[in-house]
């Protein structure tokens, strides 16, 4: 609280100091200061005092007499001093009093209304920030838990995927081996059948050839026999041979 009061006092003092002006210095206005300077004016080498001296300086300046120009510049500098504050550090007492009173009133008003409000606002803001921090912490904790759970599930999924891949690979290997075995068996069977077919074809060809040869031979024999059998003597001889064979018990 003391720190806050000191800060407020410093702020008010700086405001009063920086806002000091010629109008507020020594309790007179700029106009009365200028009027007083005109009334008391006197210049070296210029006749008269007060307003007359100012008129005579003006005339000498127009006539460009002597050091009229320098005197005029000096007098203008004196008039300009009326516009400036007497000091930049220490204002007039009345200004300090009014400023201090205003400060006290302002401080009282601020202590009565503004500071509690600001304090409440600050506390609310602090509470909101704290709530936000707590909420963020909670969310971060939840996110951490979710992340851990997801990572665990991901690890399980990876393990399961690896198991499935291994299983699929094993099955594929088994299927490939089975197919290869079947293909080899089929090839062996086909070779065996082809060999059997070739052998059968060869046998059939030999049989056909033998049959054809025998047909030719038998045809020739029949042709020869046919001519011979037309001979009655041959027929008689065949019958006699049969009778002899049957009679001898050879048949």
């Amino acid at each position: 609280m003391i720190t806050r009061l000191l800060a407020a006092a410093s702020l008010v003092l700086a405001a009063v100091t920086l806002s000091a002006s010629a109008a507020g210095a020594v309790g007179e206005t700029v106009g009365s200061c200028i009027f007083e300077e005109l009334e008391q004016a006197s210049f070296a080498g210029i006749d008269g005092e007060g307003f007359d001296a100012v008129k005579n300086l003006k005339t000498a300046y127009k006539n460009e007499e002597g050091d009229a120009e320098d005197l005029k510049k000096d007098f203008e500098g004196e008039l300009e001093d009326c516009v400036e504050a007497p000091t930049a550090i220490l204002p007039e007492l009345t200004e300090i009093v009014w400023g201090g009173a205003a400060f006290v009133v302002l401080l009282a008003l601020m202590s009565w209304k503004l500071f509690p409000t600001v304090k409440n606002l600050m506390e609310q803001r602090t509470q909101r920030i704290q709530d936000a921090i707590d909420d963020a912490d909670r969310q971060r904790s939840e996110a951490t838990e979710v992340k851990a759970r997801y990572e665990a599930e991901l690890a399980d999924a990876k393990t399961e995927a690896a198991r499935i891949v291994d299983e699929a690979r094993e099955q594929a290997a088994a299927v490939r081996a089975d197919l290869q075995a079947r293909a080899e068996a089929d090839i062996a069977d086909m070779r065996e059948r082809a060999s059997a077919d070739v052998e059968a074809s060869k046998r059939q060809a030999v049989a056909d050839l033998q049959s054809e040869v025998s047909d030719i031979a038998l045809g020739a024999a029949e042709a020869v026999l046919g001519r011979s059998l037309q001979d009655p003597e041959v027929q008689r001889q065949l019958v006699d041979d049969y009778i002899a064979r049957v009679g001898s018990g050879r048949d």
């Binding site: 019958v239 006699d240 049957v246 009679g247 018990g249 048949d251």
Partner: peptide, 12 residues
């Protein structure tokens, strides 16, 4: 011939 054949078959 028929007679001889009959005799031969009878014997058989």
């Amino acid at each position: 011939q028929s007679g001889r054949l009959s005799a031969a078959l009878s014997a058989a």
